[in-house]
Amino acid sequence: MKYITPSKKTHLILLVFLFEFFLIFPLSYGSTEENGAKKPSKAFWSVGNTTMFPGKVQIDKEGTTETFNFNPTFSFGLEYPFRETLLIIPELGLNFSGNGRHAAVSRSTFFISTDPGKRFKYFLLHTGIGLHWTFIDGPGGTETLNNGNSSTAFYLPEFTSISSNLTWTHGIGFPLDFMFDQKNAVLKLDSALYNPFDSLKRAVTYRIALQFSFSVEGLPTFFNGD
């Protein structure tokens, strides 16, 4: 097996490029004075479930890996239009992995993203860069467990550890005009790709969520250009 190890500099350059592209590029739109979109900005909240790292983790003695796991996810975000059908969608959210297998350890993930998106007739697509923070903490103390032929007290985690990961986010949203009284319910399917450049650490999460949008009076409309 052969490996190459790209330099950190390469990644930093790529990172700066991507941030410029995803963030600065749409912002620079708003600074021009030509005709902008007239659609109002919106806020939204969503509730759903995120499946963490399907295919990556063994969950029983037979070697089964998961395709779905239960992590309730809530998010809040904004939709800024900057052209007729183009949007920038900052979003922040939290998913709770709860207990289950980890009775003593709690695990949750906080995430932010600012994806550019495009509205089509029946759906909305977006992609961009996100940041995911994974919080893991435990109760401290010790736990006595088997150790060879005897048992030993092992130490439990005591503090909170935070992993931060850059992610490549993708998503599609289907407006559910027909289901709800209002036109602002959306079925969201999102995924976040961890470590896209590392073939071993690469992993995905996917989220299925219902999103409810509402107009916000006086929300700054950076991209309307007037």
Binding site: Y3, I4, T5, P6, S7, K8, T10, H11, L12, L15, F53, K56, V57, Q58, I59, G63, T65, R101, H102, V105, R107, L131, T134, I136, G138, P157, S161, I162, S163, S164, N165, L166, N195, F197, D198, S199, L200, K201
Partner: peptide, 27 residues
């Protein structure tokens, strides 16, 4: 594969700190 507990244990001891420290490991 690893189990969730293994993932959590190593993530706890060796958390990633991107984008400051990218996992540029093995391609």
């Amino acid at each position: 594969h690893l189990g969730w507990d293994d993932l959590d244990g190593i993530s706890y001891l060796y958390p990633s700190s991107q984008p400051l420290n990218l996992n540029c490991g093995t391609v």
